Simulated assay, not measured.
Amino acid sequence: MNNSKSETGCFYGVGVGPGDPELLTLKAARLIREADVVAYLCNDQGHSQARQIAAQVLKEADPSQTEMPIELPMCEDRRIANAVYDEAAILIREHVSAGLTVVFLCEGDPLFFGSFAYLLNRLQSDCRCMVVPGISSPQAASAALSLPLTLLKESYSVISGRHSDASILNTLGSYDSVVIMKAGKSRQRILKLLAESGRLAQASYLEYIGRDNERIVNDVTTLDREAPGQAGPYFSLFVITPQRRTEDLG
């Protein structure tokens, strides 16, 4: 350990899962309750999905606990986002250096498409940092569908809907099971790629997994009929698995 790191303070990335508060791990709940400072990303109206998931646990925390909302504008400009993370890292470093425990609430898992990674990159060289894993959306989607993601020798890949057509087609053609994350803005494009790859009938579509407004569509061809050309929400994904599995489950 670097000698400059605080011996008592610590920065935790804590996964709170995809949406259902009951999917919080016991360790996550304990650390959230015991933290001196709880940080989380929020929009310009102060709303944080991660905080909402952990709301009940936060009510059980000591009254001296302070919250540190980090407002992250919804834009594609990485310079703006980097400036936000830079400023947040400075504040977190000060708290940890003062011997405080800072917990950063992360939707899903902290190191799986998680914003925590940007703060970890800025802080791990001079702050004590630890990670508590959480249930990620592919695992929650698999459970919601009661569908195995992989069996026996099946291959599995996760890709973002932000990737190029060629990358997504290559993944669909190379792996038995595929999860396409961040499908919202690319929903119509992904539907076309699923059809082009011959895997449309193998796909399911999910939104807001584990939340009150969870939506599951097993026949994804209905999406284009319901809302032609319409994008989906940010918290959405496609799960594509092989159809012929009965002989493997015998």
Rank of each mutant, 00 (worst) to 15 (best):
E94T: 01
Y40S: 08
T241V: 12
D165T: 06
E71I: 00
P133G: 11
D20W: 01
L152W: 12
D77K: 12
Q49T: 13
L123I: 04
E34W: 04
V38R: 03
Q139R: 03
K182T: 10
S186M: 04
L72S: 02
A29H: 09
V158N: 02
D224P: 06
D224H: 07
D62C: 12
E214A: 06
I216H: 05
S186A: 09
G114T: 11
L191I: 03
P18M: 00
G46V: 04
D77Q: 13
A89F: 01
T246S: 14
E154K: 11
R33L: 05
R211H: 12
Q202F: 13
Y208Q: 08
T150V: 15
N170C: 08
S125A: 15
F235D: 05
V179L: 06
M68F: 04
T25W: 15
G13V: 00
H47L: 13
L123D: 02
Q65D: 06
E94D: 08
Y156W: 15
E7H: 10
A143F: 08
L100C: 10
S174P: 02
G13I: 02
L119I: 07
L172Y: 06
N218K: 13
A28S: 14
A203H: 10
L91F: 01
G161M: 04
D176M: 14
D109F: 10
A35T: 11
K192E: 15
I53S: 02
Q230A: 15
F235I: 06
L123V: 04
I159P: 08
I53Q: 02
S186N: 09
P73M: 07
R128P: 00
D248Y: 11
T221Q: 13
P69Q: 03
S115E: 05
L119D: 00
S186E: 12
P148Q: 03
L172T: 07
S136I: 05
A203E: 11
N213M: 15
P242G: 10
L111W: 12
L91E: 11
L31M: 09
A195N: 14
S48M: 14
C127M: 03
G250R: 13
K59Q: 15
P138L: 08
R215T: 10
G173D: 12
A140I: 02
T25F: 14
R30H: 11
D62N: 15
V239T: 11
R244E: 14
A39W: 01
S64M: 13
A83D: 06
Y156M: 14
E226I: 12
A55L: 08
Q139S: 12
S174A: 10
A89I: 09
K5P: 03
P228H: 03
S146H: 08
F238R: 04
A117T: 12
D165V: 08
Q188N: 10
G232V: 10
N218F: 13
K5L: 05
G46H: 01
S136T: 09
T101K: 02
G229M: 00
A81W: 03
I159S: 04
L147N: 02
S4I: 14
E94V: 01
G198K: 12
M68G: 00
T241G: 10
S97P: 00
A195T: 15
R199M: 14
Q243H: 09
D212V: 14
S142W: 05
A35M: 08
E67P: 05
A55F: 06
R93Q: 02
